[in-house]
Design a protein around this nucleic acid. Structure first.
Length: 877
DNA sequence: TTCGGGCCGT
DNA sequence: GTGGGACGGCCCGAAG
């Protein structure tokens, strides 16, 4: 019905939404689930009801006039979770953005405000709809007033009118107050009459109509016990009645006329939705208006045709290099932009590279450049033979350090995150997919200039946040220098033995053909083995093998399932072999051949430095951090990674047990520290502790189990996870874990403390102050909370290990530059570094690298590095 | 073009 | 009692 008065019980709706929805949070770790739920409901109401007046009422505070009647009112209530408290502020901001009035009154509850306004409205014969999650408000229903209760805390509303209440509640509208007075309400600590519940209360009211009548005719009440209870708790009953009666004459200072709803301004709502990450709700706000472009600052810029000393004079510059492709090893340059105290400039690519002045400016370390993605810029320019210097601040990298959970790691994304809307997204300017193309120069010139324009603001913001988080060292001393080193490694590349790759591929082609033929024979028909769907039909329908596990879409044909079916049918082994070889073929042999640089036979990966939640790097195009090693067949792929020069060889140096050593250090567990100090085999040592035997009595099975437990500890253990990896029951796994934690009390204490710390601060930290925010650490959903808890345990370990090797890379690089050694650092694979080195320098390099890696940081346990070399990566083992 | 299943690494 | 190892990237087929 249009033109209704809408009255919303803010507290109740927010509470309901909070407990109904998973604990969402926006990019800054602010919880938003309740506000989100509230908003979906609000939008629905605005869409459906088109209200003329609307008010959201809130409870004012802890004490109310009801506490004068009964000081235990609402006593014993659980404290409002802090994740919810913070949302009460947000929801008020949201209402302001919508232009919706909200109101609270000292000493009164939201119910009383709503009761008073709805009384006014009814007297004016206005139709009113009350939205709440609390059935107590049903007493306000009348001929003009409908009460809507949200079901399960969602925006699903159930409407109650005086006509429908008896059916739904078992008593009439007029009896609701007496009903509650008899029953009481444990959640509000309202006593009611002891021994009287819903059924008895309804029965009594059916017979006597009102509370007063019951007491006037007490002798007619059936049941001795009940009569006794009523007599003994008469005071409770009438006090309860007083408590549950909504005050409809509260001294509010607003009236129906004051809560006229003018409609919202789209812009304001868009902003708040963006701020809290309600992207999915964007298209529900007024369609026409929401397409209005955000008002952006006017940016006047100059297109440069000739560089001069004035423009290039200043010492602080925001400098943007726009690349067309993601892969900066091969990308064209779209253009440059520059913003400094003299103005904003677009510099076309040709103008730039033909200008000696500009190239000199790039190379000049005195000319300070604040950039976005320094590694991309450095590598792209390196391919053109230019060594850019003077990069002092990488906006993307800083954004990652300050907010690793923000996945928008391009400049417009970062700007938007901070509420700056003066840039467009690349997709908006260039299009995406097949439609991606370069627009008119004016258009992309402005786009690129705008990126530089917002750089100043972002620089200020990020600098401040780095400082507040005490992450300036992490940023300036670790990540910034590392970006340069990684860029060098990527640009140098790794030489591939293309002939060897081709040989292996041809060989595999033949073998795969044979296996495929054999599988089709065994199946009795041809089908696509690469299709899990078709394979599932063959195995579980045609051949009738037992179904062990299902996936969302059908039968699971994963390796662990197939392994259990090995004895059922000959085809299973063939499929496992096929899978193994097919993986090598497609991902590694064909995959690597595709990315070998034609002229140099080198492979140039890109390390993503701003992606992982833990601080590790990742590697793409190709991923050189997952080249096979476990199975010999796959390991041979490493024979195709060779030095780039004659008489050079490959050297690999890896940290031994770095994560467990980090754990020993962080947890300060005495036994663990001692084990590493004495250079013990840690898995054997663990087995000896957990199984309570002497070290020389540890069997290989014990050691295997202990190793799995150690892994589990590092990953943030769950009994289920361990049971899966060891093929034992969950119970047995649980016993292992407990025994472990009791053997290493320091570790146990760490695990408990880190989870508490995460609950308190909302984040955990590494030894170098790298943060990970854990918004779901207090989630009520077991699953989400458990996951966050494991993450809290794991992230400081994995992340600190990542810090250590990053620092080691910087130290190694520095030591190499100070030496006469001819060598290149080529790859990082989480806990190992790969080099190529002139044969005569190999011993020197081995010493240098081992020394640098082992001493890069001082922990309370020694770090240990194993280094080995050979003619190929394969042989460096 | 996007998603899910599967599988490679630390 | 729940659902469940941590962090990634790339291949493929199938669906949109």
């Amino acid at each position: 019905m249009a033109d209704e008065v809408i009255l919303i019980d803010g507290n109740s709706v927010l509470y309901r939404a909070f407990f109904a929805l998973p604990l969402l949070s926006n990019d800054q770790g602010v919880h938003t689930n309740a506000v989100y739920g509230f908003t979906t409901m609000l939008l629905k109401i605005l869409e459906e009801k088109n209200p003329e007046n609307i008010l959201v009422a809130f409870d004012a505070g802890k004490t109310t006039f009801r506490h004068e009647t009964y000081k235990e009112y609402k006593g014993g209530r659980q404290k409002t979770p802090p994740e919810l408290s913070e949302q009460f502020l947000i929801v008020r901001q949201l209402l302001d953005a919508f232009g919706i009035k909200h109101y609270e009154l000292d000493q009164y509850e939201a119910d009383d405000i709503i009761g008073t306004i709805s009384k006014q409205a009814s007297e004016q014969k206005k139709h009113t709809n009350i939205i709440t999650g609390d059935k107590d408000l049903l007493q306000l229903a009348d001929d003009y007033t409908t009460v809507s209760i949200s079901k399960k805390g969602t925006s699903d509303l159930e409407e109650y009118t005086p006509a429908t209440i008896p059916e739904k509640m078992g008593v009439s509208r007029d009896q609701l107050i007496d009903f509650k007075a008899l029953m009481g309400d444990p959640s509000d600590n309202i006593p009611g009459v002891a021994g009287v519940g819903q059924k008895t209360a309804a029965k009594l009211l059916k017979q006597f109509d009102t509370l007063e009548n019951i007491y006037e005719n007490l002798e007619e009440v059936s049941g001795k016990k009940l009569k006794e209870n009523l007599t003994n708790h008469k005071e409770d009953a009438f006090m309860s009645k007083e408590l549950v009666t909504i005050n409809r004459n509260s001294p509010i200072e607003i009236s129906v006329e004051d809560i006229v709803y003018p409609g919202y301004e789209t812009q304001k709502v868009v902003e708040i939705f963006k701020a809290y990450g309600f992207n999915s709700l964007m298209d529900r706000i007024d369609g026409e208006a929401s397409e209005e472009p955000v008002e952006r600052a006017e940016v006047n810029f100059q297109k440069i045709t000739e560089l001069n000393d004035d423009i290039l004079g200043p010492n602080e510059n925001i400098f943007i290099m726009e690349l067309w492709e993601e892969n900066y090893h091969s990308s064209d340059v779209v253009g440059f932009s520059l913003s400094n105290e003299t103005g904003h400039y677009f510099i076309p690519t040709e103008v730039a590279f033909e200008s000696t002045k500009f190239v000199d400016w790039l190379k000049n370390p005195e000319k300070k450049k604040i950039v976005s993605d320094s590694k991309a810029m450095k590598v792209a320019l390196a391919w053109k033979g230019i060594e850019v210097e003077g990069i002092t601040f990488d906006l993307l990298l800083a954004s990652y350090i300050v907010n690793p959970q923000n996945s928008a790691h391009d400049l417009p994304g970062v700007a938007t995150f901070y509420g700056i809307h003066d840039t467009s997204f690349d997709e908006e300017v260039y299009g995406k997919g097949a439609k991606r193309k370069l627009p008119e120069e004016d258009v992309y010139a402005e786009h690129i200039v705008r990126k530089a324009f917002v750089g100043h603001q972002l620089h200020d913001i990020l600098q401040k946040e780095l400082q507040e988080n005490e992450q300036e060292n992490l940023f300036h001393q670790l990540e910034m220098p590392l970006a340069i080193i990684l860029g060098d490694m990527e640009h140098i590349g790794v030489r591939a033995d293309v002939e060897r790759l081709k040989e292996m591929k041809d060989d595999l082609d033949l073998r795969l053909q044979e296996i495929e033929k054999r599988i089709h024979e065994l199946a009795g028909r041809a089908f696509n083995i690469d299709s899990p769907k078709q394979l599932g039909v063959v195995l579980f329908e045609d051949l009738g093998l037992p179904v062990i596990k299902k996936t969302k879409t059908g039968y699971s044909t994963a390796a662990d399932v197939l392994e259990k079916l090995q004895h059922e049918h000959e085809i299973v082994d063939q499929i496992l072999l096929y899978r193994q070889l097919r993986k090598l073929q497609s991902t590694y042999l064909e995959g690597l051949l595709k990315v070998v640089h034609k002229d140099t036979n080198k492979i140039h990966t890109r390390f993503n430095q701003v992606l992982t939640q833990t601080g590790r790097l990742s590697s793409v195009d190709p991923n050189l951090q997952n080249i096979p090693i476990r199975l010999e067949e796959g390991r041979k792929i490493r024979q195709a990674f060779i030095p780039s020069k004659d008489d050079w060889i490959m050297l690999a140096a890896d940290y031994s047990q770095i994560e467990l050593r980090v754990l020993a250090h962080i947890s300060q567990d005495e036994k663990l520290i001692e084990a590493f100090r004495q250079g013990k085999d840690i898995h054997t040592q663990t087995a000896s502790e957990v199984f309570n035997v002497k070290e020389d009595e540890v069997t290989s099975l014990m050691r295997r189990h202990a190793k799995a437990v150690n892994f589990g500890i590092v990953y943030g253990i769950s009994d289920y996870g361990l049971s899966q990896s060891l093929g034992i029951s969950r119970k047995e796994a649980g016993v292992f874990i407990n025994t472990y934690l009791n053997s290493y009390p320091g570790v146990k204490k760490y695990m408990e403390e880190i989870v508490n710390q995460a609950k308190r601060d909302g984040y955990v930290e590494t030894i170098m102050n790298r943060r990970r925010y854990l918004p779901e650490i207090n989630a009520r959903n077991f699953n989400r909370r458990s996951f966050a808890e494991r993450t809290a345990m794991n992230s400081p370990i994995q992340g600190s290990a990542a810090d250590v090797i990053k620092q080691a890379m910087i130290d190694v690089k520095q030591a190499l530059e100070n030496s006469e050694i001819n060598a290149n650092m080529l790859l990082q694979v989480h806990d190992e570094l790969i080099f190529e080195v002139a044969k005569e320098d190999v011993d020197a390099l081995k010493n240098l690298v081992t020394e640098a890696m082992e001493n890069t940081v001082t922990l309370d346990v020694p770090l240990s590095v194993d280094a080995s070399f050979g003619d190929t990566w394969y042989d460096a083992k």
